[in-house]
């Protein structure tokens, strides 16, 4: 049973003289206890999906979806207070660009304490309550790997390094003990040791607390090592989605194959000093999206049929949208 279930999410931005489809029929689901990776180049709409789920898109952008539900409740039609309650307790988000997502005029510790749900706090008097808030904040800081809590709890975001702010962001997300964690590029700008630390924390929380994680990243190595399933996004369209090991072993969509081929760590037979295989061209801008399959102009297997959008096809729990998929002969 999928906790978060999104089908055909479309996001239209009205620029004044034209309507741009930033997301075109994106489908995504996260099962309980699962780590789902959302992969795509920068500009493919990953962060837009994150914002759409958290409900913080500007009101003038139009979101439509056949289904966008949290545990069976429709996220798009529920009341503001219900939606807020879901965001407060069940879903937590780690945003990209931690420095921008932190209030620059409040100390980091105070912001962390603010995210602790009131239900966790016991005590009749306000000083008991604030003491307890402080205690929970410090233990959460230790959990995400901030050891010198005395040094950072009163610091302002601009005074500390970016990876500490990022860890605070993660701590703020985890402190409400959510059921789903949406992590938008959580290890960006971190050094490798801190990165492993954070990823290990995610894996451990997933195993011990059955925390579902939607892991948005382009770090294929990290994704391959920890996530159970993957959704690949290209220019606002879902390209392929399925279990991690199936996708790695036998990608059906040419884009998924190109993406995996471009990561040297997945290639054992790569001769030294050879150039990495990449697709020609670059990701199209939002104003000039090709019609039909948006990969069309760059796709090595493209044919005339590709000007019409391919329907989503399914083999067991592996879905793809391509007219001319790879590896079909083996199936």
């Amino acid at each position: 049973m999928a906790m978060l279930d999104i089908k055909n999410l479309t996001l239209e931005i009205n620029t004044g003289d034209s309507v741009i489809k930033a997301l075109d029929k994106v489908s995504l689901s996260v099962n309980s206890g699962e780590i789902r990776a959302l992969v795509g180049e920068s500009g493919s709409g990953k962060s837009l999906i994150v914002s759409a789920i958290s409900g913080v898109l500007p009101p003038q952008w139009r979101i439509t979806a056949d289904r966008m539900s949290w545990n069976g409740d429709n996220l798009l039609s529920m009341s503001v207070s219900q939606r807020r309650e879901v965001m407060r307790r069940d879903i937590a988000v780690v945003f990209q660009n931690p420095l921008g997502a932190m209030d620059p005029s409040a100390p980091l510790g105070a912001q962390l304490e603010e995210s602790i749900p009131n239900e966790f706090i016991r005590g009749t008097w306000f000083w008991q309550r604030s003491q307890q808030r402080r205690k929970i904040a410090i233990s959460t800081m230790h959990k995400v790997g901030i050891k010198q809590h005395k040094r950072y709890i009163h610091a302002f975001p601009h005074q500390v390094s970016a990876d500490i702010v990022q860890k605070f962001m993660i701590a703020m997300a985890l402190v409400s003990q959510p059921k789903l964690l949406i992590a938008d590029d959580p290890t960006r700008g971190m050094e490798p040791t801190t990165k492993t630390q954070v990823l290990k924390l995610f894996t451990r929380l997933n195993q011990t607390r059955a925390l579902s994680i939607l892991f948005v990243s382009h770090d294929l190595l990290a994704i391959a090592s920890m996530s159970h399933s993957m959704t690949v996004l290209y220019a606002g369209q879902t390209v392929e989605s399925g279990r991690m090991k199936h996708l790695r072993k036998r990608p059906l969509h040419p884009y998924t194959k190109a993406l995996l081929d471009s990561a040297p760590s997945f290639r054992t037979n790569l001769p030294p000093k050879s150039s990495l295989p990449t697709l020609d061209g670059s990701i199209p801008t939002l104003q000039h999206m090709p019609i039909g399959c948006r990969l069309g102009p760059r796709c090595p297997r493209a044919q005339r049929a590709c000007v019409s959008t391919p329907a989503v096809r399914r083999i067991h729990d592996h879905t793809y949208s391509c007219h001319f998929p790879l590896h079909m002969e083996k199936l």
């Binding site: 921008g100 620059p104 603010e114």
Partner: peptide, 14 residues
């Protein structure tokens, strides 16, 4: 319009 207000909203603050 700052991202930290969006982040605060995503945290479920009223």
């Amino acid at each position: 319009q700052k991202p930290y207000i969006a982040a605060a909203r995503a945290r479920g603050l009223s």
